[in-house]
Design a protein around this nucleic acid. Sequence first.
RNA 1: GGGGUCGUAGCUCAGUCGGUUAGAGCGCCAGCCUGUCACGCUGGAGGCCGCGGGUUCGAGUCCCGUCGACCUCGCCA
Length: 591
Amino acid sequence: MLRTHTCGELRRAQAGQTVILAGWVHSYREQGRELVFVDLRDRYGKTQVVFNTDEDTRIDALARRLRREDVIRVEGEVRYRGDGMTNAKLSTGEIEVRVHQLTLLSRSKTPPFEIEGGELPNEELRLKHRFLDLRRPELQRNIQLRHDLTQAVRSYFNDLNFLEIETPMLGRSTPEGARDYLVPSRVHHGSFYALPQSPQIYKQILMVSGFDRYYQIARCFRDEDLRADRQPEFTQIDVEMSFVQRDDILATIDGLVSTVMKKVRNIDVPTPLPRYTYHDVMARFGSDKPDMRFGMEITDITDIALASEFSVFRGVAGSGGFIRGLTVKNGAEKYSRRLLDVDLKNFVGDYGAKGLAYMKVAGGRLESSIAKFFSDEQQQTIISRMGGADGDLLLFVADTWKVTCSALAALRNRIGREQQLYDPQSFSCLWVVDFPLLTWNPEEGRFDAEHHPFCQPNPDDAEYLKTDPGKVRADSYDLVVNGYEAASGSVRIHDSEIQQMVFDLLKINSEEAERRFGFLLEALRFGAPPHAGIALGLDRWVMLLAGNDNIREVIAFPKTQKAADMLTGAPSEVDDRQLRDLRIAVTEQEK
RNA sequence: GGGGUCGUAGCUCAGUCGGUUAGAGCGCCAGCCUGUCACGCUGGAGGCCGCGGGUUCGAGUCCCGUCGACCUCGCCA
C-alpha cells in the first residue's frame, strides 16, 4: 500500500505516530521561504500536512513547487496542532502531519475550474471534465449515496429470499412504447437487436420458470427526448413476484421504501403508504403524480359557470368542458396584473389552456374584470366552495378535462414552489391505483395500453372488457414521491385468453401478436403462475434523497440533452470498415 | 418537431443609446511573508466577444443563419 491512513481518519489519538498519506493537493499555502501548508485531499476527507526546514530542506524545495491537484505521497509524524491552532471545519482539524518525506506521484495541469468553492461552471464544461467534476464533494456524496441505496436495496430483497437475475441487453425490438436503441447484427445482415426499455418480458418469463421472487438493478434504454429527470439510459430496480396480488406488491415496496429511507438517510416513512385512486388525484390535483407536500387542491365550478352570464365559461361548460380553479391563499397581493396576464397566462398556455381567468377575494366579494358576470349568490358559492378568504387569489382554467388537469397541475406545482408552501426537505410518498387500462386513440381508431399490453384488467371490471373497454380499470399502481413518478407496476395477465382479449382491443391481431410477443404468449401457455411486479427509478430516487432536481447530479457519466457524452464524444462516426461488416450505408438527410 | 434562456479572459460575470485602448472577482505566473487553513501583500500575463454572413463611416452591442449547453411542450407502453 502506498498509504497507511486515509485523509479523513487521523485524530489527536494518533499523535506521535508515523503515517503515510497519499492524495490530491487541495490547497497550498506558502508562509515564508521555509514553511508550507498543504491540505491533502482524498475521498475520505482532508488532512493538513506541513513542510518545514526543521525537518529536511531538500524536501522543502520540492514542496514549494507543488500545485493544486498534484498527487503526492507524504510520510511524516502526526502532531497535535496546539491550542488555538486547530481547525473545527475539518474532521482531522486537531492534527497535522509534519512531513519527513515527500513523493510527487503525478503532476496536474491547472484545472479549468475550481474543485471546491467558487461558482459552478456551466454544465458543458463540467461534463467535458467529468473526472474533475466528480472530485467535488457534492458529487462524491451523491455517488456514495447511490451506492448506499443500491446496497440497501439488495440487502432488503436478499433478506426476503429474492434472487437477483440478469437479463439480456441485446434483445428483440418490440415496437410498442418508446423508441428503441438498435444494435446491428454482423452475423444476421439487416437484423437488429434492441437494447431493453425494461426487462419486462424476461422477468415475466422468469416467473413462468418458477423464480417466484426476482429483482434486478437493471439498466434500461429509451431513445426519447430528455428532461431534467430523464436520461436515455437509466437504472431501474426491477421486481417481479409470483403467487401474489396487488397488495402484496404494495406491501413489499412499502417495506423497501421505509427500510431504505431509514437506512441511507435516517428518514422515517410511515407505512402503509397512503393510496389514492387515479380518478381522485386527477380531480383533486390534475395529475397522476401529485406533489402532496402541500394542499391547494383543484375546485370545480363548472355548474356555477354554466349558470353565469360569462359567455367564455358558459361556452366551455355548455360544450362538455370544465371550469376548474385553484385558491392561492393570500395571493391577491403577490401576483401583479402583469404576472397574471402575461407570465401565468403564457405558462398555462404551454399546457394547451387558451386563457387564465382570475379573481381576488376582497370584502367578502369577488374582485375581477369578470366578477360582474356572476350574481351575488354565485360569487358567494364560488368563495365558499373554494375556501376563499379576503386576500386570496382564485385562478381558473376553462377547457377540456385533460387541459384543465395538466394546466392546473403545472400551475399548482409552480405556485407551491414559488410561494414556498412546503418544506423542500420533506418527503411525501403515496400510491396511485386504479389507472384506466386503456385510453382511446382517435387517430388510430383503437385503444392504447395505458401501462403496457400485459397489464391485468381489474377483475371487478371484467364485464366492461366487452361492453365498455374505456371504463376498465387496470390492476396497476404507481409510486409517487414529491410529484415524481418513482415506480410503476401492475399485476400481469397470466391467462392467454385474457391476453388475447386485450390484444384485440389494442387491435393487435393474433398473427402480429405471435410475431411480436409469441415467445411470451407461448410461455404463458405452459403453466404461468399469477404474477405481478413493479420497477422503481433508481436514479430519481437517489436524486430525491440527494435533495436535487436534476438526475445528472446522481449519475457518474450522464449524457446531455441531445444524448451526447461530452467526455468521450459519443455518439461518434465509425470506420467504413465497421459499416461494411454490418452492411450498413449512411445516407444523406432528406430535406 | 415547437417555445424559452444562455454563449465576452482558464472560471463566474459586467459591458449604458452602435463610438477611444473590452473590465471586475476568482484562478494562473513571479516576488515577499515562519502558523496558515477562502492566508495576506506587491507586480504580471492572459480576449477569434461561440461560428458564418449582413446592415453601418464604425458591431461585443442591431439583423439573418448556424453550432452548442440548459429549461420546457410534444414524446417517454
